[in-house]
């Protein structure tokens, strides 16, 4: 949870998301702290992953390392799909873009590494939400197709877990669509998402659904990165 979240959490937040009593959680954290798996910030009192964990390999993955280790697979995805590729992780309730490959048509484009995108209105974000336990973010509306009802989003996310990929069809920007799949790290935990995005008429078929071929490319790339990161499945 500390690994998947913003990086540091207070005792009360941790207790709430785990649905455990504060006293119980405190005991657990003290134990983890004792072996260096968790560290407590001296001033805020917040907890974060300890240095010892970094060497064990958990779902925590440095964002720059994620970019380095996926760059070789993001390029072929852009070449095969003909679309822009982005890789995202979660930062403070948003998708943080950690890698971006231009649409390979040599038109002027700008790198948007470091940009924050909404979780619920992007394919990358939906993948990231689908495999987390954190509370849903604020479901802001961007287009008439943005999913803003929590129940509907929960159903969608169950569908994402079922299918192993997510789509966003004009849910953030009219005329734009995207497909994404999970990147799994060591032990199979989801550490990020990789996806393509572009004009809705290129991403989707005549039924307004993402081209299966495109979905296949995205999932292949996600699996290739995951395998390199040591995910076994």
């Amino acid at each position: 949870m500390l690994a998947g979240g913003p990086g540091h959490l207070g005792l009360a937040e941790i207790a709430r998301s785990l649905d455990l009593a504060k006293g119980t959680v405190h005991g657990i954290l003290r134990t983890l702290q004792g072996v260096g798996f968790v560290e407590q910030d001296r001033s805020s009192g917040h907890y974060q992953l300890g240095a010892a964990l970094l060497h064990l390999g958990t779902s925590y993955l440095d964002i720059n390392e994620l970019r380095s280790r996926s760059i070789n697979w993001a390029d072929p995805l852009a070449a095969r799909s003909g679309e822009a590729v982005r890789i995202g992780t979660v930062l403070e309730g948003k998708v943080l873009v950690v890698h971006h490959v231009f649409r390979p048509d040599d038109t002027f484009q700008t790198l948007d590494i470091g940009t924050l995108l909404p979780l619920h209105a992007t394919a990358l974000g939906k993948v990231l939400l689908a495999y987390r336990t954190a509370p849903l973010p604020d479901l802001e509306r961007f287009t008439h197709r943005t999913v803003t009802a929590p129940a509907r989003l929960a159903t969608d996310l169950a569908g994402v877990r079922e299918a192993g990929w997510a789509a966003d069809i004009e849910e953030l920007t009219v005329g734009q669509a995207a497909v994404a799949a999970p990147i799994r790290g060591y032990g199979g935990l989801v550490v990020g998402a990789i996806g393509v995005s572009g004009l809705v008429e290129r991403i989707c078929d005549s039924h307004y659904r993402p081209h299966p071929r495109l979905v296949g490319y995205v999932r292949d790339a996600a699996r290739a990165v995951s395998r390199d990161l040591g995910a076994t499945r």
């Binding site: 390029d75 852009a78 070449a79 971006h100 490959v101 231009f102 390979p104 048509d105 040599d106 484009q109 700008t110 790198l111």
Partner: peptide
């Protein structure tokens, strides 16, 4: 023809 711009700073 295989060369394409993937990123630019």
């Amino acid at each position: 023809h295989n060369w394409h711009r993937a990123g630019q700073w």
